[in-house]
């Protein structure tokens, strides 16, 4: 039982459990934020699992999730826009903590893998994940009534 899988289990239990509880109960605005956070939490745990199992090919799973997770949240932000106008879900504290956790995991894994193309791939995944998380929460909290394009 190496430390990586243990870290992934802890992250999965805490983050996954909280996100699931958030998405299953409470007002619609909190559910959407919880769905956004579920991506931001489970992608690092996939990275940790890839490191724990020693298979670099599993990193593609985290890459795909870092790409499509925020797209899923954008779908909800876009198609639930009229129902979300009431109470704006602005859980910026949670968003930044989740992004912080993701960044920490990516940086630790980069330190372990050492300077190589694999490390650049991890950095790309980290960048996609955090930018996607921030943009999705921006879209959730009123992004879709924003400035009209020039």
């Amino acid at each position: 039982m190496n430390g990586w899988i243990l870290a992934a289990t802890v992250l999965l239990t805490a983050g996954g459990g909280a996100a699931l509880w958030g998405v299953a109960t409470g007002p619609l605005s909190r559910r959407v934020v919880a769905q956004n956070l579920s991506t931001t939490v489970i992608c690092p745990s996939l990275l940790l699992l890839a490191q724990g199992y020693g298979r670099t090919s599993y990193v593609d799973l985290a890459l795909l999730l870092a790409l499509l997770g925020p797209v899923g949240t954008l779908v909800f932000a876009r198609l639930l826009a009229d129902e979300l106008t009431g109470d704006r879900p602005a859980a910026w504290g949670l968003t930044w903590t989740a992004a912080g956790v993701g960044a920490a995991v990516v940086l630790v894994l980069c330190a372990v893998t050492g300077p190589s193309r694999a490390m650049v791939k991890l950095l790309v995944i980290g960048a996609l994940l955090i930018s996607g998380n921030v943009v999705a929460s921006r879209a959730l909290s009123g992004g879709l009534r924003g400035v009209r394009d020039g």
């Binding site: 593609d60 890459l63 795909l64 790409l67 499509l68 925020p70 797209v71 954008l74 996609l128 930018s131 996607g132 943009v135 921006r138 879209a139 009123g142 992004g143 879709l144 009534r145 924003g146 400035v147 009209r148 394009d149």
Partner: peptide
């Protein structure tokens, strides 16, 4: 639809990246 600039810029940036990732897979 009026979409916030960061969301639009993110979509335009991730569009080719996601296509390249799909073709890579």
């Amino acid at each position: 639809a009026e979409v916030a600039l960061p969301v639009r810029r993110y979509a335009l940036l991730v569009l080719p990246v996601a296509l390249v990732t799909g073709l890579y897979v």
